[in-house]
């Protein structure tokens, strides 16, 4: 690994901006484009420079790029003979085999609508995905399965890292201020369980605030969201967040 990095940490880059020259061992990313020994950014994003390597975190993008092993939340789009087509906000439709959810082989002619209907939400892992096949989902482990309670909202997949914040700072602020439980999935879907609808509305407002947010620094965003929630729910909940 040798070469020169031309960008600073947290710098905003455009497509075509020269990031580095030389030979770097960086994981494959659709957001970095290499020509001969020059590395260019391929999207509008923020550069993370760490320990002599770099990554580009996109600031734009309404599509999720599936990664094997990711746990995603999707909506059932269609029911097929032996499984479901699930919208996971990727350029490709995902397929969930019924045997994976039911943990047994499916008998021919079985009505799968009884287990998952069109419009239902499902949490599943991306089991298989590459250039030639559409993503195949699997229900494995306790944190996956049909979503039976709470509310599902969405944000641009490129904004999920901002919603979570550095070391989960923004997400923890949101949860401690409202008492809601939030699960953020990498495809931009958010599952929340709130004590009441007032908190739910506050979270929804905060999420749309993050969605239209243009600032590139997360610390400022956390402060903005903190003020927003405080104005919505009153100051009583703010003190509890100070301890958290």
């Amino acid at each position: 690994m040798s070469g020169q990095i031309f960008v600073m940490d947290q710098q905003v880059v455009c497509p075509g901006d020269l990031l580095a020259e030389g030979d770097f061992e960086i994981p494959w990313s659709p957001y970095i484009y290499k020509e001969s020994n020059r590395y260019y950014a391929s999207v509008v994003g923020v550069v993370d420079v760490k320990n002599g390597t770099f990554t580009v975190v996109p600031l734009k993008g309404s599509k999720y790029w599936p990664r094997v092993g990711d746990t995603v939340l999707g909506m059932v789009e269609d029911i097929e003979l032996y499984g479901w087509t699930v919208d996971i906000r990727a350029p490709y439709p995902a397929y969930l085999p019924a045997s994976s959810l039911l943990n047994r082989p499916v008998t021919a002619g079985e009505d799968l609508r009884r287990y998952l209907d069109v419009g239902d939400y499902i949490v599943a892992k991306v089991e298989v995905f590459d250039r030639t096949t559409n993503p195949i989902l699997a229900v494995r482990g306790s944190d996956t399965g049909k979503v039976t309670d709470g509310t599902v909202v969405s944000i641009s997949p490129s904004k999920t890292s901002r919603l979570i914040g550095r070391n989960r700072s923004l997400l923890n602020t949101l949860m401690s201020m409202t008492g809601c439980h939030l699960m953020v999935y990498p495809n931009g879907m958010i599952h929340m369980r709130c004590p009441s609808s007032a908190q739910e509305e506050a979270i929804k407002g905060a999420i749309s605030l993050i969605e239209i947010e243009q600032e590139s620094r997360i610390s400022d965003l956390t402060e903005k969201v903190r003020r927003f929630i405080a104005s919505k729910l009153g100051e009583t909940n703010v003190s509890s967040s100070a301890e958290a």
């Binding site: 455009c14 497509p15 075509g16 659709p30 957001y31 484009y33 020509e35 260019y40 391929s42 999207v43 509008v44 996109p58 600031l59 734009k60 993008g61 309404s62 599509k63 490129s158």
Partner: peptide, 11 residues
């Protein structure tokens, strides 16, 4: 295309 976040070589 840049606004849509679609990867491209350059503007």
């Amino acid at each position: 295309l840049a606004d849509a976040g679609i990867p491209m070589r350059d503007l």
